[in-house]
Design a binder for these strands. Structure first.
Lengths: 117, 117
DNA sequence: GGATTATTTCAACAACCATTGAAGTAACCC
DNA sequence: GGGTTACTTCAATGGTTGTTGAAATAATCC
């Protein structure tokens, strides 16, 4: 991961509504959830939420797909792992502790644990 | 870790000069380095840097101590691990992957690996 | 096609943030 | 004590960010 992307990710998460949104999506898993559900769950108005979704999407932290009239947003776990990796890069002065491994992985992509191990 | 603290940490890191500063300190290890060295290394003027150090310090990501006329700033590895932990909390839908373990740990506190394992 | 539901777009505004230059403090050296 | 080095404080300024309300688009239902 390069600096601009890391910066975008951190900026995207450094705002209460977006952090709440992202964590809600993380908990919702890779299937994601519709914008309206996020709106009511967090008590944030739809237009404000669209603004925040855009930021999260530009940072690569979420994806959208349309389903009927709903827009389904889902967390991008790989992006989060890359961000965490960037923060801990070059740390530990050679003492590698859990560095290569992803810190978060939804059930649906469980198989990847083997690939990376 | 609670939300306000996580938010402060993310906001602190979501700015180029601060992200660079923090990563430089992470690489410098727990001993830290003087403000002036960070200033010349990054090409950021001392007064601007003080402003950023303050934010990092308020977020708990760095500490300062005086040594002669220099101020030595050092990364707080525990704070960073807590922040990463907050992001990945409640994720994975029960599939625990590296969740409890710290992702970064400087050489000086290597012993703690045992304590937590 | 008209009404309804779900979400996005847009312009406007207040609040916050980063940088600068100048002045201030704190420790050290002679 | 006077001068120097290392940082910090302060006020001012331009730029960015988040929220709002109103209007627009997009898909569905009757």
């Amino acid at each position: 991961m390069k600096k601009p992307q890391a910066l975008a990710g951190l900026a995207a998460l450094a705002q209460e509504n977006r952090l709440d949104t992202f964590r809600l999506l993380v908990q919702a898993g890779p299937e994601g959830m519709p914008a309206g559900e996020v709106s009511t769950a967090l008590g944030v108005s739809p237009n404000t939420l669209t603004f925040h979704f855009d930021r999260l999407r530009e940072a690569g932290l979420v994806t959208v797909r349309r389903k009927g009239r709903s827009m389904i947003y889902a967390a991008q776990f790989d992006a989060m792992n890359a961000l965490v990796g960037y923060l801990t890069e070059n740390c530990c002065q050679g003492v590698t502790v859990n560095r290569a491994a992803p810190v978060c992985m939804p059930a649906a992509s469980k198989k990847r644990i083997k690939e990376r191990a």
